[in-house]
Simulated assay, not measured.
Amino acid sequence: MHWSLGILLFFGTILFMEGVAYVAHRWVMHGFGWFLHASHHRPRTGNWELNDLYALIFAVPSFLLLLGGVQLGWWPGFTWIGAGIAGYGAIYFGFHDVIVHKRLNHRYIPKSRYMKRIIQAHRLHHVVETKHGTVSYGFLYAPKPEALKAELKRRGYEGVRAPVGTFHESDRQSEHI
C-alpha cells in the first residue's frame, strides 16, 4: 500500500473516531453504560475512576487492527486504521484527561478560540451530574457555549450540579432518626 493512502486512512480514521466517540458518549456512556461513566460526572476520589475502563475498551479495536496489519498478514490498511484509532485516543487523553480534567499537573492556559470553545463546552457537559439532560458529547467539535447554555436553560437545568458548598435536600440525614 502506498504511504499516501496510509496517511489518508490515518487522518480519516481520526475524523471518523470523533463521530464514533460522539455516538458512544451520547448513547452508550449516557445510556446502558452509565454504570461506568457515572463516576466521571462525580468528584474523583483517587487517581482512577470506573469510567477509565472505557479507555481499555476502546483500545481493543486499535490493538487488534495493529496486530493484524503488522503481524498477522491482514490488509495493510488495517495498520493505518488501528494507528488512527490510537491517534484519536492520544488526542482524547491529551485534551480530555490532561487539559480539561488536569489529571496530570500542568500550567497550560488556552489562548485560541477553538481550545477555549471545546474546553468550555466540555465543562458545560459536566455541569449535569445525571445520566440525562446534558449537552455537548463530542471532543474535537463542540457547539458554541451560548447555544449549550441556552439548551441547558431550555431543559430547566435538570440534574445540574449545585455550586460547591450548596446544601442539597438529598444530602440531609433522615429527620426521623
Results as ranks from 00 to 15, higher is better:
Met1Glu: 12
His2Thr: 12
Trp3Asn: 00
Gly6Tyr: 00
Leu8Phe: 09
Leu9Gly: 01
Leu9Trp: 04
Phe11Leu: 15
Gly12Lys: 08
Ile14Pro: 02
Phe16Lys: 08
Phe16Met: 14
Val23Ile: 15
His25Gln: 05
Ala38Phe: 08
Ser39Leu: 04
Arg42Met: 11
Arg44Tyr: 15
Trp48Asn: 14
Glu49Ser: 15
Asn51Gly: 10
Asn51Met: 08
Leu53Phe: 15
Ala55Ser: 13
Leu56Thr: 13
Phe58Asn: 11
Val60Ser: 02
Leu65Ala: 05
Leu66Tyr: 03
Leu66Asp: 01
Gly69Leu: 00
Leu72Ile: 05
Pro76His: 06
Gly77Leu: 04
Phe78Ile: 03
Thr79His: 04
Ala83Val: 04
Gly84Trp: 01
Gly84Glu: 03
Gly89Glu: 02
Tyr92Thr: 05
Phe93Met: 06
Gly94Met: 10
His96Met: 07
His96Glu: 03
Val98Pro: 01
Val100His: 11
Lys102Val: 11
Arg103Leu: 13
His106Ile: 06
His106Thr: 07
Tyr108Leu: 11
Pro110Ile: 01
Pro110Gly: 02
Ser112Tyr: 07
Ser112Val: 07
Lys116Phe: 07
Lys116Thr: 09
Arg117Met: 10
Ile118Pro: 00
Ala121Ile: 01
His122Arg: 09
Leu124Pro: 02
Val128Phe: 03
Val135Gly: 06
Tyr137Phe: 13
Leu140Arg: 05
Tyr141Lys: 05
Tyr141Phe: 13
Pro143Lys: 08
Ala150Lys: 12
Ala162Glu: 12
Val164Met: 13
Thr166Ile: 07
His168Ala: 12
Arg172Phe: 12
Ile177Trp: 10
